[in-house]
Design a protein around this nucleic acid. Structure first.
Lengths: 187, 187
DNA sequence: GATGGCATGTAATACGTTACATGATTAC
DNA sequence: GTAATCATGTAACGTATTACATGCCATC
């Protein structure tokens, strides 16, 4: 593991409570997936590697009726590793926006096709924004209950700021492209 | 190649003019790297695959004095492939923000460490924003010269919107965390 | 009887980064 | 002399996705 960051997402979730691989997948989906997603094919092998390096330990729960559960618990060593990483500043965020890659070469296709791409981006973003607004309301209600909630709120606020920026940009971009159709009627 | 998107970045650049692998790297750095980056280790093998599948063709330029240049030109088939991809809407943007992954588990470390992480994110973003502002000025000056420039401007405007959102968020987040220190003086 | 949730994982493949390896020319 | 730019690429490794494979239980 050179610098697998998903392993820290897993360690972070386990620092609250013991979980199975399946649980971890559900948690990620429900909480951090909009800025850090992971599938089963990544979670299960990572858990095995974390166990091998002694950062988590496994307890097998067998039951006749239900599938065998493998519950993972974070170790002291795992907690230290997590804290060490959390305190280390991010060197560089690497982001890839497919919408921008398409738009950059937009002159190769028609204006209306570009407008459609922008519109789909905007609609998708609007749905995400609504979900984030819901999270914000929920978190504000329970803010004082737990030290973690403020940090959750900060990440949600980030999402709201960025998605509002997407909406504003998409409107401006659509206007600029539409005025191009009117000027040159080259569509 | 399942759905290598970097290949479209390369095809897009070649749709303007023939380039070497080295040229492509420079172009990417100077134009799209803030939303789509690629290294030599990705560019050279991708060019070879593109040639094998007939989307680009290669011309070897030998010269005694300078290194052998391999100039790649997009084919008709390559142009069609590019256009087909450009017109296909983006299904899902997958983004990973390391800063948010760290912040989500922020309660595990001290408030001042979180504040430092936010500050570094903000400072880095500010530098990028200044670069983007420069791009905007340049592009506005030459907007009417070329059909491409409007599309370049749209991607730059996107960057500006998003980076302004980063700045506003970072300020709010820092304030919220600072008020936590004052309330609980738990740092 | 079919769908969906719970629960595990492996295998194949693709995507991407980093280090390694070479060597000439040009500018300071 | 030294660093930067031009110019090529391979090898090793790590990260991530997708498909495959299994099987029970509960609900509709």
């Amino acid at each position: 593991m050179r610098d697998n960051k998903t392993k820290y997402a897993i360690l972070g979730l386990l620092s609250h409570q013991p979980l199975t691989g399946y649980d971890i997948k559900k948690r990620i989906e429900a909480t951090i997936s909009y800025f850090w997603d992971a599938g089963f094919g990544q979670i299960y092998p990572t858990l095995q590697k974390l166990e091998t390096s002694g950062l988590v330990c496994k307890k097998v729960e067998m039951d006749e009726n239900r599938p065998t559960r493998k519950v993972y618990t974070i170790t002291k060593k795992g907690e230290n590793e997590l804290k060490k990483w959390l305190g280390r500043p991010v060197e560089k965020e690497v982001l890839r926006y497919e919408i921008l890659l398409k738009l950059y070469f937009g002159s190769r296709i028609s204006v209306s096709e570009n407008l459609r791409n922008i519109k789909e981006f905007k609609d998708r973003g609007k749905r995400t924004l609504e979900i984030l607004n819901g999270y914000e309301q929920d978190l504000k209600r329970v803010l004082s209950e737990n030290d973690d909630h403020l940090y959750y709120l900060l990440t949600v606020r980030f999402g709201q700021y960025v998605h509002q920026a997407y909406q504003a940009w998409a409107e401006e971009a659509a206007k600029l492209l539409e005025s191009k159709i009117i000027e040159g009627h080259n569509d």
